[in-house]
């Protein structure tokens, strides 16, 4: 029995020493989790999370002082990915709007005051003093920090306009969201009676109300 106690003690001591040494020699620099989280976050330093920047947000996420829904531009998809990375439970229904949005300036309300341009952390708004301001659709990531800046309330977040370049077939088995307003307008007006597609009745739900500050335009429309 003595041999057993002795040998187990020695083994335990030996392995403990190995672990101690490996903790010193094989230690990982920095926090890989933080790098990973920073890569997931948009990186636009917009400040909508309430913290100084994306690096601080990553640190706060690791500490657990902020929830995974802290980043508005990331939306539900980002919150879900952060939850999976951190291993925390996440309820997708808790995040309100899954649709990506971008800012849109109502030209009629623009004063040319430059306040939104100075606020935007990724230079997504172009314009000059007393000149019209406009948002670059390809750059804006919908963080919303410019919305509060506009003195006339001329900026709103609208759904990203769809185009054939970004459309793709939906995944089988999932119910996709209803199509955009244009589609229903055409279908209601131009579909001739008596020519139904199969036995399905054409009584689809009305389109959802969109946040709009101006009549809907489309990416690529000429002025």
């Amino acid at each position: 029995m003595l041999t057993a106690i002795l040998s187990l003690t020695l083994l335990g001591a030996g392995f403990g020493l190995l672990l101690r040494l490996s903790a010193r020699w094989l230690a990982v620099e920095g926090n890989p989790l933080q790098t990973e989280l920073e890569a997931l976050l948009p990186g636009s330093q917009c400040g909508q999370c309430g913290l100084a920047g994306c690096r601080q947000a990553a640190e706060a996420l690791i500490e657990g002082t902020v929830p995974v829904t802290v980043c508005p531009p990331g939306g539900r998809a980002l919150a879900q990915t952060l939850a999976e990375t951190l291993g925390v439970p996440f309820d997708p229904a808790a995040v309100a709007d899954p649709e990506p949005r971008i800012a849109m300036i109502n030209e009629a309300a623009c004063l040319g005051c430059m306040r939104c341009i100075q606020k935007c952390s990724i230079d997504a708004i172009v314009g000059a003093n007393k000149q019209m301001h406009t948002v670059l659709n390809e750059v804006c990531n919908g963080c919303g920090s410019c919305v509060a800046e506009c003195p006339t309330g001329g900026i709103a977040l609208v759904a990203v306009p769809q185009s054939v370049e970004t459309w793709h077939w939906h995944k089988p088995g999932r119910t996709p969201p209803p199509p955009p307003a244009d589609f229903w307008h055409w279908r209601r007006l131009r579909f001739r009676p008596g020519h139904t597609l199969g036995n399905r009745p054409i009584n689809h739900p009305p389109p959802p109300a969109l946040l709009r500050a101006q009549p809907q335009t489309h990416a690529g429309d000429r002025p």
Binding site: G43, S44, S121, I122, D123, A124, E138, N141
Partner: peptide, 11 residues
Amino acid sequence: RRDLARRLAAS
């Protein structure tokens, strides 16, 4: 787009 935003924010 994210990479672009990151670059723009940095610049």
